[in-house]
């Protein structure tokens, strides 16, 4: 336990990276997932097919392989993140972080899309017809009527998807991001007699982040229920 307590700054900084990964990939995956679901339920057959194919391919690919692809294979095709050089305080966001965000975003967006699709299916057809009847085009029907209601209906599964994302950020440890799990490995290597305490400390860190997020999700859910 002392290994962590004596190095609290390293501990918090590592979880800082975890939180950054989660926030950036969480926002981007929600945006991408929303675009994907609009394509999937939209009137253009080509876009429907493209979105469905994307979901099938990405959802059936292990996350580690996504990471490996963007770390080792994509650079060969010229897709690299060397341009990313952002420094905020003591945090450095570089190519490794960029590859991790892209992997996590693409991977999570497929699940966001499917979660939202369940929400879209829960919106009664009459809502869509009423939106069409006042002259809203497809984009307006989706953004003004269907998606706001779909988000409300799909909030519990979407929260689960984002919680999975929080934990999935740990995969970035293997691909050069100094986030919590990477730091944990550093600790266990340096203080091998304290492994148990180190594991407990990092488990607690993840639990706190997930619980804080769950709390927000539950509150949002309750707020929306009052509004309806």
């Amino acid at each position: 336990m002392n290994a962590v307590l004596d190095n609290l700054d390293a501990y918090f900084k590592a979880f800082g990276y975890t939180i950054f990964l989660f926030l950036v990939a969480g926002v981007l995956s929600t945006l991408l997932g929303t675009v994907l679901v609009a394509m999937r339920v939209g009137p253009v057959a080509v876009l429907r097919g493209a979105a469905a194919t994307y979901v099938t391919v990405v959802r059936n690919t292990p996350l580690v392989i996504m990471f490996a692809f963007f770390s080792f294979a994509a650079p060969i095709f010229g897709i690299q993140f060397k341009w990313l050089q952002v420094h905020v305080g003591t945090f450095d966001f570089t190519a490794f972080f960029g590859a991790a965000v892209v992997s996590l975003t693409l991977y999570t967006s497929a699940f966001v899309c499917e979660g939202l699709r369940a929400g879209v299916n829960a919106v009664p057809l009459g809502q869509v017809e009423a939106a069409r009847a006042i002259g809203l085009p497809f984009g307006g029907v989706m953004s003004q009527v269907v998606l706001p209601q779909a988000f409300r209906a799909a909030l519990p599964p979407l929260a689960s998807v984002q919680i999975a994302l929080i934990k999935n950020t740990s995969v970035a440890a293997v691909f050069g991001v100094a986030e919590a799990t990477a730091q944990m490995r550093t600790f266990t290597n340096s203080f091998s007699s304290e492994r148990f305490g180190i594991f407990v400390c990092f488990a607690i860190g993840y639990i706190v982040i997930v619980e804080a997020f769950s709390f927000l999700a539950t509150r949002t859910e309750r707020h929306w229920r009052v509004a309806l």
Partner: peptide
Amino acid sequence: LANLRAEVGMVFQSFNLFAH
């Protein structure tokens, strides 16, 4: 089509007010 629908008012059996 959307423009045309804007010119035609529609009232449904089940009201279909936007719930949110």
